[in-house]
């Protein structure tokens, strides 16, 4: 079992979160959260239902202002103008009036990248997610799994400093989930991006994450940090997998 020190040894800190606190009037939702995200890491966050995971993500992405605390990206306070934080929502957020390839171009155009760079990335992403034959189709013409892949391609094309994913596979059937999770891992391996994946599904967290942070119930604090050093591809019936899964389940249960 890898210890936290061993795990952090070879890694560079990409994002550093200190004393993150969020209050809505009297209600304390996030309470003094401190943690680091390492460069190229796949980090999963789990917690009991209603613990404030979505507030946590929204604060991290700067959609809502934090009451207190600091978020540093590469040592500099997080700034949407120079930092690239991409967000994949729970609801599929593909742009309905743009074709698949235009959807992928969309984010790149907003970031004002040079035209040939944009084309190069669009081609690469279409190839990577296997949507090349569907490049001119519109999202409504595709199944929901394909739509979700368009969103993922769009986000990864930006080469984000940090990719935040809020339970993007929640409503899909389980075999499809496994397939998309495998695809996510494949793309993540290729591009070496830093990913923060929030989910309610403990098994998904153990399947995907190199490290899992368990949040406590409201007001949310980091309850536990668990290193998952299983080889990939991981198997849900592997005794070591099961052991970690049970450990995380126990950890969430006792708030």
């Amino acid at each position: 079992m890898t210890t936290k020190e061993d795990y952090a040894r070879e890694k560079k800190v990409k994002v550093s979160v200190t004393d993150l606190t969020k209050c809505y009037d009297e209600l304390l939702v996030l309470d003094d959260i401190n943690f680091d995200i390492y460069d190229g890491e796949m980090l999963c966050i789990v917690g009991p239902t209603g613990c404030g995971k979505t507030t946590f993500l929204n604060t991290l992405a700067r959609f809502i202002p934090a009451t207190k605390g600091e978020i540093l990206v590469d040592g500099v306070p997080s700034n949407p103008r120079c930092h690239n934080i991409a967000f994949v929502f729970q609801e599929i957020s593909s742009v309905p009036w743009l074709s698949v390839e235009d959807n992928i171009r969309f984010g790149l155009k907003i970031k004002k990248l040079p035209a040939d760079e944009i084309e190069r990335r669009v081609e690469a992403m279409l190839e990577l997610v296997g949507l090349k034959p569907f490049r001119r189709n519109f999202p409504q013409e595709l199944s929901s799994s394909m739509e979700q892949r368009v969103v993922i391609a769009r986000n990864f094309a930006l080469n984000p400093d940090l990719l935040l994913m809020d339970e993007p596979y929640g409503q899909l059937d389980i075999k499809l989930r496994y397939y998309l999770e495998d695809e996510l891992i494949r793309i993540w391996n290729e591009l070496k991006s830093t990913v923060l994946f929030v989910t309610h599904n403990i098994e998904e967290a153990v399947y995907l994450g190199q490290r899992i942070l368990v949040l406590s119930n409201k007001p949310a604090k980091i309850k536990e940090e668990i290193i998952v050093d299983l080889p990939r591809p991981r198997k849900f019936d592997d005794p070591a997998f099961v052991k970690i899964r049970e450990h995380v389940t126990e950890s969430i249960r006792w708030w």
Binding site: S143, S145, M146, D173, K175, L176, Y179, D237, V242
Partner: peptide
């Protein structure tokens, strides 16, 4: 859910179901 017989059943049935893309 994590009982070995449960997981074995799960593996068997999972391999049997189709993937709808």
């Amino acid at each position: 859910y994590t009982d070995p017989r449960f997981l074995e059943m799960r593996r068997k049935i999972s391999d049997d179901t189709e993937l709808s893309l």
